[in-house]
Deep mutational scan, measured.
Amino acid sequence: MAAGGDHGSPDSYRSPLASRYASPEMCFVFSDRYKFRTWRQLWLWLAEAEQTLGLPITDEQIQEMKSNLENIDFKMAAEEEKRLRHDVMAHVHTFGHCCPKAAGIIHLGATSCYVGDNTDLIILRNALDLLLPKLARVISRLADFAKERASLPTLGFTHFQPAQLTTVGKRCCLWIQDLCMDLQNLKRVRDDLRFRGVKGTTGTQASFLQLFEGDDHKVEQLDKMVTEKAGFKRAFIITGQTYTRKVDIEVLSVLASLGASVHKICTDIRLLANLKEMEEPFEKQQIGSSAMPYKRNPMRSERCCSLARHLMTLVMDPLQTASVQWFERTLDDSANRRICLAEAFLTADTILNTLQNISEGLVVYPKVIERRIRQELPFMATENIIMAMVKAGGSRQDCHEKIRVLSQQAASVVKQEGGDNDLIERIQVDAYFSPIHSQLDHLLDPSSFTGRASQQVQRFLEEEVYPLLKPYESVMKVKAELCL
C-alpha cells in the first residue's frame, strides 16, 4: 500500500493539533497551500530580480507567473513527485505547466533550498508574528487579574506546605514575570531571523556568478533584492546548502521555554482548584465526569500541561538535527523538520489560546482563602504575639514557653481530632496574655502579614508589564474561544 493518505478522510490519521486544537490561522501558515504558494512567490521574486539585473526574462513571463501564483494543481504535483521522487522539481514542473512561456526560467540558477529553506524562514517569521500578540493578550488578562487582587491576602506555599502570606495578585505576578520573559525572547528570536537568500547549491553562489558572467556586484544585488522582497532586513552571508540548523534550535528553545512557563502556571491553577481557592472557567453544560456528576475538573489547565510537556520535548529534535548536518548538509534534517517545526508552533498556539481562555474567566473564592488563612495564621502570628507581650512588660522566655504549650495543644486538636485551630481562643482565655487581649485582632490582621506584596504588584505592572504590552494595544480586544 502506498504511503500517505487522504487526510480529510475519517479513515486516515490526522494530527489532533490540526484537527482538534490549533487555530485556523496557525494551521494555514503550515498548510501545503501556504507552503507551495510561497515557493511560487519566491520563484517570481527571483525572476523579477534577475530581470532587473539584466537576464533575458520578459515582462510577459513575469506576468504569467504572477497570474498563476494561486493556480496550484495539487493532484498534478503529487503525481509528479511520485514520478520524480523530488518535491521541488515536482512543483517546478507543475508551475511550468500553467506558465508555459515562463517554464524555462522558473528556478533559474537556484537549488531546492532556495524555495525550501527560504519558505521555512518566512513561515517561522509569520508563525512567530501570530504567537506574539496571543502571548501579549494572556499577559494582559493576567495583569488585569493581578491588579484587581493585588491586596487580597492568601496563604503562600513553599514545598506545598503553608508559608508566609502573600497576595493573590502577587502570586499571579510570578506567572506574568515568566511570560514577559517569554514574550521578550519570542520577539528577540523573531527579529534575529535572517533570510537564507540566493546562495546556490553549497552556499557559494557559483551558479549565479556564472549567470551574471562573473559580476560579483550583481550577485550581491540579486541576494539583497530577493531578501528585501521577502520582507527581511538581512540575509546570511555564510550558508551551506541550507541555512544553519542552529536557527531551528533557537526558535524551538524559546517555544519550549514558553511551554515550561505555561505548565507551571496551569499546575498552580490545578492545585488551587483542589484547594477550592480558584477555578478555571466551567461552562453551564460542561460535564466533569461521566460517573461523578459533582466533579469540576480543571480540564483546560490539564490540557495545557499535557501539550506543554510535548512542546518542551520537541527542542531535542533540532538539537540532534543540527549535530548531524555533515559538511554542507545531509538530508537527516528533512523529514524531522517537516514534523517538529509545525508541531512546535501548533502546540504553542494551542496552549496560548487555551491559557487566554482560562485567564479571561478565572474565578476566585475569597471566603475559602480566608478560612485557610484562619487555619494557619495563628501559628504564624506567634512571633508577633511574643513581641507584643514583651512590649507590655512580659518575659520573652516565659511567653515563648506559654505559646509553645498552647500551640501544641491547638495542633493536637487540628491533627488528632480534625478540629479547627483554636490557638487564639486559648490565648484569649489565658490570664497571662490579658495585657494584649485587646491587640489580638490587630495582630491577626492578614494584611499585616503580606509585606509589600501589593506595592510590588503595582510597581511591576507599571514599570515592566504595561510598557512591554504597549506595541500590542491594537490587538488586545480579541477574545479566545474554545470549541473543545
Rank of each mutant, 00 (worst) to 15 (best):
S15N: 14
S23L: 13
R33S: 06
R37P: 11
R40V: 03
W43G: 06
I57H: 12
T58A: 03
T58Q: 10
D59A: 10
K66T: 11
K66L: 05
E70F: 13
E70R: 13
K75H: 05
A78K: 11
E79Y: 10
E81T: 05
H86N: 02
V88A: 13
V92G: 13
T94Q: 03
P100H: 00
P100Y: 14
A103G: 05
L108D: 09
L108M: 03
T111F: 04
V115I: 07
D120W: 11
R125N: 14
L128E: 12
P133A: 06
P133M: 08
R137C: 06
V138K: 12
F145S: 10
A146D: 00
K147L: 04
T154F: 01
L155I: 03
Q161P: 01
Q164Y: 09
T166L: 12
L174V: 04
L179I: 00
C180A: 01
Q184G: 06
L186V: 05
R190Q: 05
V198G: 04
T201I: 07
F212R: 04
E213S: 04
G214W: 09
L222E: 01
D223A: 08
K224D: 12
T227K: 02
A230I: 11
F232K: 05
K233H: 01
T242Y: 02
R245G: 09
D248I: 09
E250P: 01
E250R: 13
V262M: 09
H263R: 05
K264M: 07
I265V: 08
I265T: 11
C266W: 14
K276G: 04
M292I: 09
P293E: 09
N297G: 15
C304E: 14
C304I: 02
A308H: 13
H310N: 11
Q320R: 08
S323C: 15
F327I: 02
E328S: 08
R337T: 00
C340L: 03
I351A: 10
N357I: 01
V364P: 00
E370D: 03
R374F: 01
M380F: 11
N384L: 13
M389I: 15
Q397D: 01
D398R: 02
Q409T: 05
V414S: 11
V414C: 15
E417Y: 15
L423R: 12
L423F: 15
Y432A: 07
I436V: 12
E462W: 12
Y466T: 05
K470C: 09
S474G: 12
